[in-house]
Structure formats: C-alpha cells, structure tokens
C-alpha cells in the first residue's frame, strides 16, 4: 500500500499544515517580569491579544515568528477575563479566521500554539473537554505548559476559538473567542497606526 493512502499520514499532514498557519499568528510576549508567554494576532484588528498575566506593563516585548522584535503598547487589559491587547507599529501577518466557541462539541479536535519554556512555535493537539455553554472559558483535554499562555487555541480548520490561559486539573483552559470579541468591543482600542 502506498503510505500516502494511509489515514494517519493524511492526518499528520493536516496537523502540520495547520501548525504552520498557527505559527504565523503566534508571537512571543515578554512582560515587565521577563515572564515569557505568547500572543495571538487577532484577525481584522491587527492587535496582539494575550493574557493579562503575560502583558502587565505599558510596553511589552513582542517577537514575531520571523524574528522581528518590537515593543507592543498595552491598549486594553482586563485581569478578571485574563485578557490584554497590544498595539504594534507594523501591520502584523493577516490573521486566521475567528470562530465562535459556542458551536464546539465535546470531542472536537483543537490545537494550541505557543512558546512553552521558550520553545517558539510549539504545537499541541487535543479535544474539547466540555461544550462551552454560557461560560467564558473553554476547557480542552490538551497538554498545555507555562509559555502557551496568550497563544491561540484553534479548531481542526485552524480557525481561532480561544486564547490559552490556564491549566486546571490537568485540562487546558482558554478564554473563548466570543469573550475576546466582547473585550475588544468594550475597550474600543484604537487600531495600531
């Protein structure tokens, strides 16, 4: 049998393709404590969305996957939702699609990208643990580690469904894309020049 005919090969090709897409929109963020996390280029806005526990200074370091390193200006921050938005002086890569996390079912495949322990552009895969319902949090059976914080959680098509935030009971906990949109509307942050 041609090995390319095997389902597992097709699957790993698809994961590799989405990993490459996600890497494009994933940045490294360094806050005031030098704590290294991740950030996500948010589609349409050109802003970098990350966690409030990652970006805690008026200016935080942002490093893109191509190595470009520039300051990001904190334009909005909400510690309760664990969200922050950074504006940068360049037009970031065109982002992926956003998808509402409400349509996800338990068992749907999800992928996270980030910089665990400084490994830039790392990827991990898992499934939705529990449908979101009315919650602002999405729980996923996915193996996160410190450094994934602020990075994107995407569905099997690569569409962003959340921002990785915490590890609870061994499960990944992300802020839903819907919550991020509400956060952005609430703060009306001006788009970067």
């Amino acid at each position: 049998m041609n090995p390319k005919d095997r389902v597992g090969i097709h699957l790993s090709d698809a994961v590799a393709m989405i990993a490459a897409q996600m890497k494009q929109i994933t940045v490294q963020v360094r806050g005031s404590r030098g704590w290294q996390g991740s950030g996500t280029v948010w589609p349409l806005t050109g802003l970098i969305i990350t966690n409030a526990h990652v970006a805690d200074a008026p200016l935080d370091d942002v490093e893109f996957s191509d190595g470009l390193r520039i300051p990001g200006r904190l334009v909005a921050r909400d510690p309760d939702e664990d969200l922050a938005a950074l504006a940068v002086s360049v037009r970031p890569p065109v982002g992926a699609r956003i998808r509402s996390a409400c349509g996800l079912r338990a068992g749907d495949v999800v992928l996270a990208s980030g910089n665990p322990n400084g490994d830039s552009g790392a990827i991990t895969t898992g499934i939705v643990h529990h449908a979101v319902g009315k919650s602002a949090r999405l729980f996923a059976d996915i193996r996160l580690a410190p450094g994934y914080s602020g990075g994107p959680l995407a569905d099997a098509t690569g569409a962003i469904v959340g921002i990785n935030s915490m590890i609870i009971d061994g499960l990944g906990c992300a802020v839903t894309s819907d919550t991020v949109d509400r956060f952005l509307r609430r703060f009306h942050p001006t788009e970067a020049a």
């Binding site: 097709h10 699957l11 079912r105 338990a106 068992g107 749907d108 499934i127 099997a156």
Partner: peptide, 19 residues
C-alpha cells in the same frame, strides 16, 4: 477535504452518540 476535520467530527459524533 481536511482529514483532521473529518476526524474531529467523528470524535465529537462518537462522544455525542455514546453520551
């Protein structure tokens, strides 16, 4: 078709069916 999307649907369908 994206085989990862098919896989994702199958897993979610299995969870829902067995559920």
């Amino acid at each position: 078709s994206n085989p990862l999307v098919d896989f994702s649907h199958e897993l979610a369908n299995t969870v829902e069916g067995v559920g």
